[in-house]
Every structure is written in C-alpha cells, then in structure tokens.
Design a protein around this nucleic acid. Sequence first.
DNA 1: TGACAAATGCAAATTAATTGCATATACTAA
DNA 2: TTAGTATATGCAATTAATTTGCATTTGTCA
Lengths: 142, 142
Amino acid sequence: MTNTIKHDCTQELRDADLKITPARLGVLSALENSNKPQDISDITTYLKKNSVKADQVTVFRIINAFTEKGLARPIQFNEGKLRYEQASASDHHHFICENCGDIEDISDCHIDDLEKNINNKKGLLIKRHSLEFFGLCKLCQL
Amino acid sequence: MTNTIKHDCTQELRDADLKITPARLGVLSALENSNKPQDISDITTYLKKNSVKADQVTVFRIINAFTEKGLARPIQFNEGKLRYEQASASDHHHFICENCGDIEDISDCHIDDLEKNINNKKGLLIKRHSLEFFGLCKLCQL
DNA sequence: TGACAAATGCAAATTAATTGCATATACTAA
DNA sequence: TTAGTATATGCAATTAATTTGCATTTGTCA
C-alpha cells in the first residue's frame, strides 16, 4: 500500500465512536493537511492522490458523520455547496475574494466577548459561530 | 384579483431599474413580511398563499436580480441552500437554534471596527460579511 | 475466529439552482 | 391610447450537490 498519510488519527475516531477505516483516516488527514476549507471533491481528489480507495458517496457519508460527531465543521461561501474544515482548528474566520475566489484565514477576532454578552442578554446558548468576510483581495483591487 | 399584499413597493423596484410586475412585488412583500430569512420555497409558498402566480424558476430569477440590485441579501445557515432577507434591514446577524431551527436576530455587533482593522492589516477590501451563531435557544436548553 | 453491526460501493433519487427558448407583459414614444 | 420593443415569465430540460436504498464487505469484540 502506498498510503502516504503521515499523522495517525485513530484516536480521534475512537473518541468519536467511529470505526477506524482507511477512508475515514484519509478524510481526517485531508482536512488536517489543508489550510483552506475543503469541498467533497477536494477531499475525494486528496484520497485518490494518497491511494485511499473511496467513493464520493462514502466521502459525503464520512463528512456527515464527522460533522455530527464534532470532528468537522461545515462552511458555506455562497458557492452552492458546502466546504468543511477540522472542527479542532482554532477559532478563526475567512475572507473570500469575490473576484478570484482566494480564501484567507482571519484570526484575532474576539467574537467570544460578543458571544458572552449575547448569552447573558438573551439566554441563548451559543455553541459556535460562522463569520465570513467577502470582498476583494489585495491583487484583485488593482 | 385576490392579491392581499398590502404595502406598495413599486418605488423600490423603479429605483432599482426593474420593471414592476406582480411576481416582483410579491417577492418584495414576502421578504418584508417575514422576520426570518426566507429560502426560495418559503417565498414561493408565500406567493401562492397571496394568489400571486409565479413559477419557482421565476422566484430564483427575481431573487437573483434583487441581490444584484441590492434589494435582497443572501444569508447562509450552512444548510446547503441560500436564504434571503431584505437588504434594507439594518446590519444584524442571526442566531440559529440547532435543535428547533428557530432564528433570532442579533444586533449590536460591532464588526465594523474589526473590518477596518483587517482592511488595514492585510490590505483586503471587505465589502460585506456574514456572521451567524449556532447553539440552543432558551427553550431547547431545558 | 466467527458473528454482527456498521461501513462501503454502486445505482438511482432528490434537491438547489441554472439555462434555453417560446410566449406574455410592462414600458416608451408617437 | 396604442404599437413596438425589450424584458419578464413559464415550462421543460440540465447541471451540480447531496441523499437514499440495497447488496456486499469490513471492522470489532466476545
């Protein structure tokens, strides 16, 4: 087998009560080894490159299980499809260039304070948020 | 005609350089008369209820035109489809209960300062943002 | 190791959104 | 007010993302 996946993620799967399968390890690895949120076909491509045999439908099912178990998190960039990133990734947001589609991470957004405030005021229990910025990246402004 | 739509929105359409048609007035009214972002089928249903004859495809086209002209604004709750709200609504965000699907408006989020900061630091030109919170509403926490 | 539940593959169905084209309708200028 | 024209709409068909059903395979645990 030419499985070139480096990091061992079996424990993450065990903790999530998911059976350890090559496809699942591959999907976890795909999310881990990319700095941008991945769509299903990104992941499927990654698996192929790494000699992990898995149908696109399987990837959908795995990603859904991951989302349910809190291993992955869905993100939508107005593309008509969902992307996913590791849920363990530190709190950050995204900037999407409306011209070239480039995605940049934005950190240092202290939304947490805001959240606490809302929790208190309205009695809501906020578990996560999604903050995306849209505009033009440096190059596309020229 | 049993068109029960109250408020007259013709001026909004005229200002946007869009011809005034029953379907467009109906869609505007659907957005106006709802406090939650509507998806296409919500809008189509509203039109039917109000005896406005319009195909679902027409609603898609109208909503796209509205978005382009700045009358409507797309919102994503990571459901794999888009929702829309009146663009004239003041800057606010949403809280979506993951249990019951309830949507509440959140205002008083001063993201603007954040944006300015990011603009300066990274040279990005931010035109709009999307901030949604997910969690449990008051009732669903019990 | 063997049994059983869960995961996967493949085909088919569903859903969101778009496109093409023929027809109907709103608006403009006379 | 009406005719002419550009635009909007309806309907059918298409595309792309995602889901579902079912038969088969594969992890896991006793």
